[in-house]
Design a protein around this nucleic acid. Sequence first.
DNA 1: TCAAGGGAAATTGTCGACAGGCGACAATTC
DNA 2: GAATTGTCGCCTGTCGACAATTTCCCTTGA
Lengths: 232, 232
Amino acid sequence: MDSEPLFEPLTRDALTQRIARILTDAIVSGKLKPGDRVAESVIARDLGVSRAPVREAGRLLESAGLLVSMANRGFFVRTIDADDLDSLYELRLCIEREATARTVREGRVAAIRDQLLAQIKDMVVMSEDNQLIHQIGVDLQFHRLIVETSGNLRFLAVFDKLASEIQACTALIETVFDEPGKVARNHLLIVEALDSGDEDAARAAMDYHIGVARDAVVGHFRRLEGAGDSIV
Amino acid sequence: MDSEPLFEPLTRDALTQRIARILTDAIVSGKLKPGDRVAESVIARDLGVSRAPVREAGRLLESAGLLVSMANRGFFVRTIDADDLDSLYELRLCIEREATARTVREGRVAAIRDQLLAQIKDMVVMSEDNQLIHQIGVDLQFHRLIVETSGNLRFLAVFDKLASEIQACTALIETVFDEPGKVARNHLLIVEALDSGDEDAARAAMDYHIGVARDAVVGHFRRLEGAGDSIV
DNA sequence: TCAAGGGAAATTGTCGACAGGCGACAATTC
DNA sequence: GAATTGTCGCCTGTCGACAATTTCCCTTGA
């Protein structure tokens, strides 16, 4: 058993990472709105760094799907419409469905069961405190843990990419869900299905769960669009 | 029908694109082998450009999965093992399975049927001429067309990312398939299933088709690994 | 009033330079 | 002789500057 190292490896390249984090927060929090221009020179000036690391951070967020870039025009916060969001959930469905089945098939449920339950508990508390943003964060962690445990790193890579987008646009919508705690508790059904050891049951539970979220989020988004309350 | 423009608009960003293309070719052709270091300063010197666009191209290929980067050490050609390849095919399976079903469901088969058949014909010819690389190219185009027609842009984005990896490592393996023309003709089964208009049948056909490819490629890779003939 | 045209300002694409990190090898200590 | 420490060269991370392009506004003309 190798002993715990005394210090964490001190990550350099911190600059790019930190800038990416700052921009992400700005997008998620709504300080930067979809369609807004993100000029590297402006960001660089504000942050007191050169354009190079800002550029890198921009590329990072571009591949994460939060920004889009146009040649000679720079970066813009990605605009999302309901159809796009629907595609996103459809993809998420494909990935998580299989990942869930795989986790069961590989017999890895027991290893994460307690952790999943703890996360559900956290979600319930947060939803009662109206800490929606944090609740969504834990929600994603719950799903991520299952995908990670599946053992297919490609699944996890796609999930992580989608997660930042889901988080960003869910935050935009603010309050999609009606009954506090209900969604959080619905996650219990997934854990039960995982416990059953039945691959198909687990797949179906996740299918249903994401389907509900998809209908809620996309539906809400469509209503906003219909009302002309431009999210773009 | 929009006519093909005579020349691509020569954006300045073309430099990054061209470098990315050059590096991609070098990797696919085997001039750069998995694990090889790709020093931006060296590439920049050879090509007679500054490091900035080389760096951009590197990031591009990193997000395409052809390169990996390590902090302060630069880019390396990605190494792939059989498990990784298996994960890749599993993901591809998820995507294409649903995309195929979606294409049928949306009633878009008729619009692409002729094109698909033409591609199969091309593949047969190429396989008889032992033009494996080009055959794989058309093969991917065939699958891509179906995914594209599904209408879910997210599916297409994931597929495109995987495609470059699949192409790169399939080229490494050189000759996986035994009977020339057999694989090419197997694509006819997919078109038949699409024609049937039965969503489930189409899904199953694609499932089977990719499953066969997966077994062939991953199996071949595993044998190479077992023989100690290091691909890494 | 509005469309077309012509800059000036703003912003990106590219460049060369410099400082610091990392790996390899030599020097040193036990 | 093995392990640790010092040194060197190469490479990346970051920077400021310049060139090319786009955008915006203001003028001009119908």
